[in-house]
Design a protein around this nucleic acid. Structure first.
Lengths: 115, 115
DNA sequence: CTGTTACTTAAGTTCATGCTTAAGAATGAT
DNA sequence: ATCATTCTTAAGCATGAACTTAAGTAACAG
């Protein structure tokens, strides 16, 4: 789980920036070149390339250079991994709430157990 | 969508740290006090409190102080919002791939359209 | 060969993050 | 009142993140 930790670090960190999320959003509608990704962003090209590097190192985005154009695509499997981490915890929590609700409904007096 | 942006910033940033994710993981199994959250972490209590503040400001965690104990709980609705952002983009991308696959299957010669 | 496009690399600045230790409440138990 | 527990606040420090400008490379067009 420790290697996975570092990977989640990078993915969530990559997503923790509005410009990078905007790039991901753009890529969700189809592949794009670096300049296409840069076009709507109010910053220099090198800055965009740095953001792109963060996304690529996180595994969320893959890129391939053909000629002088680097084309970027989304890696939906990576996104799915981040999603999964969240949903696992959320479902664990919600399952616990449901159980508690059932117990209270079945025994309004309240059970006395450990914790 | 701009206010939502700042909220996603905070949530993904909160999740981009292994210690904070460990705290979330712990909370997914039920509420906990600050010291309970701190116990498995190799850092000072004030450091844990700082992490907790990040989680709370992100909306992922809610806390309430009773007596001298602050009890922390997960906010599954907030987790769901982060999850949703990811799944929206991922599904957009996958839908696009499916469409492309169908087109190629239906017309192996390849269609010529505006991107 | 010359110039334009599309990116790359390098260097430097500014600000935020993630700790630390030390000291200060506030609550509850004796 | 005294003392321990549980958290809080403050201050400081080391590191890294997010830009910038300037200059460099590589592909392609004329």
């Amino acid at each position: 789980m420790l290697k996975n930790d570092a990977s989640l670090d990078r993915m969530f960190h990559a997503l923790a920036d509005a410009s990078r999320r905007q790039m991901v959003d753009r890529l969700s509608r189809g592949p794009a070149s670096v300049s296409e990704l840069a076009q709507p962003l109010a910053m220099s090209l090198p800055a965009v390339v740095q953001h792109l590097a963060v996304l690529e190192e996180s595994g969320l985005v893959r890129t391939e250079k053909v000629g002088r154009v680097r084309t970027c695509t989304l890696d939906s499997a990576a996104m799915s991994r981040a999603e999964q981490w969240l949903s696992d915890r959320r479902l664990g929590w919600e399952r616990r709430l449901d159980r508690l609700g059932s117990l209270l409904a079945a025994d309004p007096g309240g059970p006395e157990k450990k914790t």
